[in-house]
């Protein structure tokens, strides 16, 4: 056994561990908050915006970077919309003061 580990294998390790973490964290989410869970996971999956930024990055504008810029805009809608709407919903779940 010699040589370095292929990055894809490292990715796979990370992937499998992350699925386990996700599995355990999500089962603890209270059913009352399942809608905020969907909106916040939506915002989190929009972290693909980092891929879009890289695609839009090159100094010369070409087909690929235009695609990237459009993807940045789409993902940004989700990032802002997802977190803000989650916050709006969670505000409603604040403990009500007994009048």
């Amino acid at each position: 056994m010699t040589g370095t580990v292929d990055p894809t294998i490292i990715n796979l390790v990370v992937f499998v561990l992350a699925v386990f973490v996700g599995y355990h964290v999500i089962w603890n989410v209270t059913p009352a908050l399942h809608t905020p869970l969907m909106s916040v996971t939506n915002a989190i999956s929009s972290v693909i915006i980092v891929g879009a930024i890289l695609a839009a990055g090159p100094a010369e504008i070409d087909f690929g970077s235009v695609m990237g810029a459009v993807a940045v805009a789409l993902a940004a809608i989700n990032v802002a919309g997802g977190f803000l709407v989650t916050r709006r919903m969670l505000e409603m779940f604040k403990k009500k003061k007994q009048a």
Partner: peptide
């Protein structure tokens, strides 16, 4: 080859699957 994307994606993926 971006581990953060993989982690975030798998969290969301398992969340949706459990739901």
């Amino acid at each position: 080859n971006n581990t953060m994307l993989i982690i975030a994606g798998s969290l969301v993926g398992s969340s949706g699957a459990i739901l």
